[in-house]
Simulated assay, not measured.
Amino acid sequence: MDKTTNYMYNVPMKYKLIGLDLDGTLLRSDKSLDKSTVGLLEELSKKGIHIVPITGRPLSGVPQAVREIDGVDYIISNNGSKTVDNKTGANIFSLAMTNEQSREVITEVKKTGAMLEVFTNHYGYCEKNVFEHYKDVYAGTVIGDYIFSSRKEIDSLDILFDNTGNEADEVFIICKDEADRERIKKHTDKISDIQYCMLADRFLEITKAGTDKGTALQMLCKHLEIGLSEVIAFGDGENDLQFLQKAGTAVAMGNAVDCVKDMADIITYTNDNKGVEKALKDLIGD
């Protein structure tokens, strides 16, 4: 099977779910949606195919234009920590850290002096110094638009979890450099049942061990009584690997990192060149 963008074939099987990463995949670089791609997704949803965004964003950071796509009944957010009902926002599944874990992670990361934010209840929460950092770096950019729509400033992260039942989906840490990231990771290694995801050259995410997009996809498919072989998954980044590996057909975007391209069944065009739409037309038809 040719994995390049020059493939032209149809797969003789019935798909029941399309899993879509957002940034770098369904969303163009300017964070907009291609209208004809949306139109095709809605036509496929009328044929009974579930359209499921699978993103690292919290629910509050999922663009309204994505949530309004007909057929998007469920959203997997926070890199698999939450699976939610798109209409009500209710949690279908949660893979969050416990309240005790959440408090321990926050306490230990604060000891390192690093800037951090915590995701819970569909938002990211950060203290004043982090919020000001985001203003300085991202104000007036498309990334800033996303950040300021999905984050809330709070006096202290501790009050989110002390004497409450709140559970953190993720703790996101802004490190000075790679060496600083290793220092923070080493300091928090003593905490049980957590895992790390290293992003770019200086960011670190802490989540509950076993939490990823692939586990969440598997749980949703079981809930919907859909076989993983009946799933088409699209992604571009390392945090997409687990759900691409679970899917019956894995599609890497033309702009994907090499490790995603290497494991994918198909490599389509880039997110700025209708990659999702072109692959779906060949796989399912229009």
Rank of each mutant, 00 (worst) to 15 (best):
L283E: 05
T4V: 09
D286E: 15
E178F: 12
H223W: 05
K190E: 11
K110R: 13
D85P: 04
Y196G: 01
N10E: 12
V109M: 02
M219R: 12
N6Q: 10
T112S: 15
T5A: 13
S150D: 02
I154S: 08
G210L: 03
K82Q: 11
G71D: 03
D34C: 07
C197W: 12
D236K: 04
G248Y: 03
T207M: 15
K47A: 09
E127K: 06
Y7N: 11
E43R: 13
P12D: 12
T55H: 03
E117Q: 14
D30R: 00
K190F: 14
K47Q: 14
R67A: 09
V231E: 00
D158N: 14
L204P: 07
G248H: 04
V142T: 14
E108T: 13
L33F: 06
K46S: 12
G210I: 01
G235T: 05
V260R: 02
Y269Q: 11
G285C: 06
T25I: 03
A200E: 15
I143Q: 12
I174H: 11
T164I: 06
F203S: 11
A256W: 02
Q64M: 10
R202H: 15
Y74R: 00
S94D: 08
V62M: 02
V142F: 09
V257Y: 08
T55I: 04
T120L: 06
S102Q: 04
K208W: 01
Y74D: 00
F243N: 03
K185F: 09
V137M: 11
M253H: 04
G19Q: 02
D155T: 13
I232C: 06
V137K: 12
E170P: 00
D23S: 03
G210F: 03
E153Y: 06
N6C: 10
D236E: 04
V11I: 15
T107P: 00
R67L: 12
G275Q: 06
A90M: 10
K261I: 07
C175K: 09
S32T: 15
V142R: 07
Y74G: 00
L22M: 14
I49E: 09
